[in-house]
Amino acid sequence: MLEIRNLHVAIEDGTKKILNGLNLTIRDGEVAAIMGPNGSGKSTLSYVIAGKDDYEVLDGEILLDGENLLEMEPDARAAAGVFLAFQYPLEIPGVATMTFLKAALNAQRKGRGENELTTPDFMKRVKVGAEKLGIPQDMLKRGLNVGFSGGEKKRMEILQMALLEPSIGILDETDSGLDIDALKIVSEGVNALRSAKRSFLVITHYQRLLNYIVPDTVHVMSKGQIVRTGGKELAFELEANGYADYVTNAAA
């Protein structure tokens, strides 16, 4: 379970506040969607949960299964079960995708005090995961994300998530830059990972993604707060009416 209480965040000189007392709880197995206009703080929220340096947490707490994430380094958070699928996955030239996956997986296992995977065991897992997402084997030998198309990068993020088996998967605008076929493949990849134990935080501008990854709850974010919460039907309402109401209301 992820619990965010009264979270206040500014960019690091402390002058510009992005999150203003945000509260959000995501139960085990729940798929929560966050929608909201540009600049409402959606991506900031995902980065703060994952532990990016550029933000200053002024107040509040983020607990994952009762553990305070804010006291942990980004790699420790990853080992504790936080996975962030990036909106713009980074390229690592010269590091074969396979090498990266193995290093990440074993680093997390080490962080949890588990044994490293044997190479055959690891290879098997990658092969199975890659096939499901239509990722060809030769892509795994190339430098991570180097020369990958937008769709390939997003598929690679989902493959990483499948291998790392997080307890919470955060998808930061995973639908951006995807055509409809890629959107389907990525969504199916996410749906296959849904389980009673694993929760998701799906950040998006558009209702379209939520046709494929059907959320349990939808939250509207504006000016760094959750301003409304509802079921999946709330997404349709937003699609019809836009965010204009929330932008003005939340200012109060």
Binding site: A50, P74, L84, L90, G94, A103, A104, Q108, G111
Partner: peptide, 29 residues
């Protein structure tokens, strides 16, 4: 970039492991 480092650390690598990985990729040839 700090972004590359953060990306690697989000996947579970320590700052030192991440730097080593990126540098090794750079000098591989």
């Amino acid at each position: 970039s700090e972004d590359q480092l953060f990306y690697c650390r989000q996947r579970g690598l320590s700052a030192e492991e991440a730097t080593a990985l990126i540098v090794n990729g750079f000098v591989k040839d």
